[in-house]
Amino acid sequence: MTIAFKPDETYRDDFTFRNSPAAIRRFPFPFGEDVYRYAVNIEPHVRGGPTAAYDNLFDIDEHYIAECRERALVLAHDPKRCQALPHMMAAQWDTLELLMENLSTDYPEHFSLVRDGNAWHWTNRALGIEQHFVFGDAGTLPCEPLEYIGRQMQGDLTLQDQREDNLFMDAGMVTCQADWSLEFDLGMKFHEWHGPVPLAHEQGVFDRALKFLLNLQLGRPVRRLNWTMTINPRMDTSPEQYPQWGPDRTTITPENAGSRVHLRVELQSLFRLPRSNAILFGIRCYLISLEELATIPKWSRRLHRVLQTLPPELVEYKGLSRFRDTAIAWLAQRDDGAPTSVGTAPD
């Protein structure tokens, strides 16, 4: 099926990004019940799930072209959003292979890959790219493999080397992150880059998650959802750009909350990579305004209830303090107290 792209949308300045009704219905809504509960919530990343966002291992949607352009803008301003330590070259090629194979298989109208031994021919019709290259020879691509394929993907990518019974974030392309910095976190161990997350360390969450991921198997990826809230449909909420987006948090009023407050969901997927034994972490970001969310009454009711039960540490960590009450008040008008159905799928 051909996706109707919306190439002119923007994620900055005039913020013309909007979700079509179809894009709203495929949103990976993260809350399965009416109260907030922290859980490791890792599950097999298999095709199929509550919405169409789960139909493929790497999801492409109507925002693809606009998001790739936004990524290019971020990289032009700050090339350090894509970095790889020297020992990660094999993992970069693994990533390129995994992504090209999946995109060309799942979206043959838009992508194709022809392999003749190590001579590869990649076509990305959505972005108008055609490339002949030699797999394993970085000199035959215009840039390193991670950057090459990362520029053609929705969502951030990080690559973790496995050694010392730990995972090290030794490479990544990160342009649409929820307030963490690749330049700062590059080279860190699992517990170090999760350092700023409150509550979970004490509950042993990261110990268990690390143990699980060290045994992640080839061909058996896993996923989890994470979420926060962002003012305006802004992809780049990095610490680097905090001076640009931080002030937005003070601008929310009862009148504009519906259009400007966005639920930001990350569909995070983890893959064991074959040649490098590294782990690919995909962080696919979805944005939806409260107004768009409220077209699915179950979701606006539930978000209202979840926001009310969020622990104060998480309100602070997720940066919601300045506008949570306004968002709750906006949602309260759309919560008639009716019961919601089990699960995250729209009614």
Binding site: S181, F184, L186, G187, M188, E192, G195, P239, Y242, P243
Partner: peptide
Amino acid sequence: GRTLLVRDHYSRRLAAFMGVQADAEQP
């Protein structure tokens, strides 16, 4: 020249702590 808040987040690669603008949200 920005006023940075020093966070406890530490990078061994950079051998440095993280500083982010302290008053970005409200000058």
